[in-house]
Design a protein around this nucleic acid. Structure first.
Lengths: 203, 203
DNA sequence: CCTACAATACCGACCAGTCGGTCGGTTGAC
DNA sequence: GTCAACCGACCGACTGGTCGGTATTGTAGG
């Protein structure tokens, strides 16, 4: 076990595991307690309700994922490359960590209004990341002008669905199979033909 | 009240309403009973568990929606038109009936493995509808060849996300705002340029 | 350095409400 | 008579949250 993790973090780790395995409703606080060697009272000292704990976990994971993607794309200097790397990174990270994917993508809606709001919040994190870069790509003239807000939802939705499929059925492989197709449809097909920018080669 | 609906159907109607309002977990069987003027025993005579009842409702709604879309597209005779009409119809129908949309799109996953399977099943209904028509469109040469299976997931995912957004936040309007953009990105941009088929107009 | 005292962190037995499901019984059609 | 359809009081398992109490850490005074 880790040397001396803060209690709060230990709780969140255990909670992440249990929520991912069982889903929000079937996850029992007692189960989280059992896996933490923290008492129920101790848990409730840090998180005043099950809902709060769940949100804390989701926030944490969502933010971390967005941050990682932002780090990765910071190095690219054209918007269209940033878009491509963002797509790739998201699929790679979630494709590698099944538990994270499941938690972020499927456990979290359909449980009442507070949850819906949280879901929107987290997904918006991704969508606006995409939107910014779509805007930039349009500005730099590498893709056609589109309604970038809606286009960003479309990106998120497409990625989401592909990953959920894979989670439930094991295919398509997010990175090897889905990614190329996503790029082709979402990105390549929106490209402004290179010839019209650079002048293509012609006889 | 309706003249003399079969008990089984009355139950399913009430269940649909309650599930849509509360979500699976927060929907109480007693509440469904209350709205049905059928006793609990009577309900359990027809549906042996809450889960079974829920699945029956979801199946019913999912199948009905697919059927309606199929009816609408049957009249079109080119694949690309069928694709367009399918997209339009789905957004129109779900965009008009909020309750149905909510039930089909968000109440249903994240509650244990049996539910995941059901969700996959229902979404597959839509995906394969799309897939068939994408295949046909490729065959008739009106869109570029793509991995139509994955592309169909992408369609479903994109539509799903747009609708969920709208459900939770009220925008974008599925038909007026989202639809044109969906068409543009999913369909138009995949089109084989008309000139290469018919010979375009040129100076 | 030690004591006093408080604030923080943590413990776990217990409670109260909820809800899916059951079961012995009734009804009415054939 | 019998059997599908239906009734509704009741059960028991489960679980989020509480609460009185304990351990640990911080700190001010002597």
């Amino acid at each position: 076990m880790p040397p001396k993790l803060q209690t709060r973090e230990r709780i969140m780790e255990a909670a992440e595991a249990v929520f991912a395995e069982k889903g929000y409703h079937d996850a029992a606080m007692d189960e989280i307690v059992r896996r933490t060697s923290v008492s129920k009272g101790g848990l409730y000292f840090h998180f005043s309700s099950k809902e709060r704990l769940f949100f804390a976990v989701m926030d944490h994971l969502g933010r971390r994922l967005v941050r990682r993607i932002e780090e990765r794309i910071a190095q690219e200097d054209s918007a269209i490359d940033r878009l491509e790397v963002a797509l790739t990174t998201a699929l790679e990270l979630l494709g590698r960590r099944r538990r994270l994917a499941k938690l972020l993508l499927v456990q979290g809606y359909s449980m009442g209004n507070a949850f819906e709001q949280k879901r929107t919040e987290i997904y918006s994190g991704f969508a606006s990341l995409i939107e910014e870069n779509l805007d930039a790509a349009v500005a730099e003239g590498s893709i056609r002008p589109v309604n970038t807000r809606i286009a960003s939802y479309l990106w998120v939705g497409a990625v989401n669905e592909v990953l959920i499929r894979w989670l439930y059925t094991g295919s398509p492989d997010p990175v090897r199979e889905a990614l190329p197709e996503l790029k082709r449809i979402l990105l390549e097909s929106q490209r402004v033909p290179i010839e019209s920018v650079l002048g293509g080669e012609h006889p």
